[in-house]
């Protein structure tokens, strides 16, 4: 049984610590906000150049919805779709950084033992830490995506461009895959935290997380698939299975006895 009162107390503490760590706060939350601006700038630039090779890009060839678009609009759609995929990195990177500082940080400062001595179950403790890390990550991802979506109307050379970039598959990915990727990131961070003594090491080891997003990025670019709702749902289903497996492994690593006697 979960004790939400204690989980809430823990989340508040985590966020209070985050607010007081100005360096971590700025380095974690400011760079993601640059991503939509950078993407919009590049999409705007794509609309200024007419390149006949654009039509030869595999991603343009396999999606019939792109037929009939002008070269500039086509370039905007293709690059817009590629960049929109990169938003999926945010729900992994931000929770990964927050969770590594939270868990490895507690381990380094030796604050875990008093915490574990309190009458809070390790399930509540882990859930509190997971939620404290993923909620800001998902919220910031959605905020950046919203900025991107809002700005797209201003930089699009053709009114159909926003609808083709912000396609249903991308929205499914954003709403379904983002939280799952965040969960995977935190679960992996918890497991890595048992072995390392530096938050940055935990972040680097968990760098493997970008692999699924890079698969999506290059898969789309090479025209291997179109990220329609069916592909997005299938991808989310795979992520859900991975998330469940990794969370189970994380709960095995995050046990009082193991933390106190095996974590180094």
């Amino acid at each position: 049984m979960l004790h939400w009162d204690r989980i809430t107390v823990l989340i508040r503490k985590e966020w209070l610590e985050l607010r007081r760590s100005r360096g971590l706060l700025l380095s974690t939350f400011v760079p993601p906000l640059i991503l939509p601006l950078f993407a919009l700038g590049l999409i705007f630039a794509m609309g200024l150049v007419s390149d006949p090779d654009t039509a030869e890009i595999p991603a343009a060839a396999i999606d019939p919805a792109l037929a009939g678009l002008g070269l500039e609009a086509l370039a905007q759609v293709i690059f817009g779709r590629q960049f929109s995929t990169l938003f999926l990195l945010l729900p992994m990177v931000i929770p990964n950084v927050l969770a590594s500082y939270s868990i490895v940080g507690e381990k380094n400062r030796r604050t875990l033992e008093p915490l574990l001595a309190a009458p809070i179950s390790v399930g509540d403790l882990l859930l509190g830490k997971v939620l404290a890390a993923i909620i800001p990550g998902i919220a910031l991802t959605w905020l950046c995506a919203l900025l991107f979506a809002a700005g797209l109307g201003f930089v699009a050379i053709d009114p159909v461009v926003p609808g083709l970039v912000l396609h249903p598959g991308w929205i499914v990915m954003l709403l379904l895959a983002s939280p799952l990727l965040a969960l995977i990131a935190v679960a992996l961070t918890v497991m890595v935290s048992a072995r390392v003594n530096d938050p940055r090491s935990a972040q680097q080891i968990a760098g493997v997380l970008i692999v699924p997003v890079m698969l999506l990025f290059f898969g789309q670019m090479l025209g291997l698939f179109v990220l329609d709702p069916a592909v997005a749902l299938l991808f989310s289903l795979v992520l859900a299975l991975v998330a469940v497996g990794l969370l189970w492994l994380a709960t095995q690593a995050f046990q009082r006895e193991k933390i106190l006697t095996r974590w180094r």
């Binding site: 009162d5 204690r6 107390v9 823990l10 503490k13 209070l16 610590e17 007081r20 760590s21 400062r109 030796r110 604050t111 875990l112 033992e113 008093p114 915490l115 001595a117 309190a118 009458p119 809070i120």
Partner: peptide, 22 residues
């Protein structure tokens, strides 16, 4: 415990109220 294990960025009052709530 052997080491105090307190949260350095939190105040004394915040440290105590956090644990009291826990």
């Amino acid at each position: 415990t052997e080491t105090p294990g307190l949260y350095d960025t939190l105040s004394a009052l915040e440290n105590l109220t956090f644990f009291a709530r826990l």
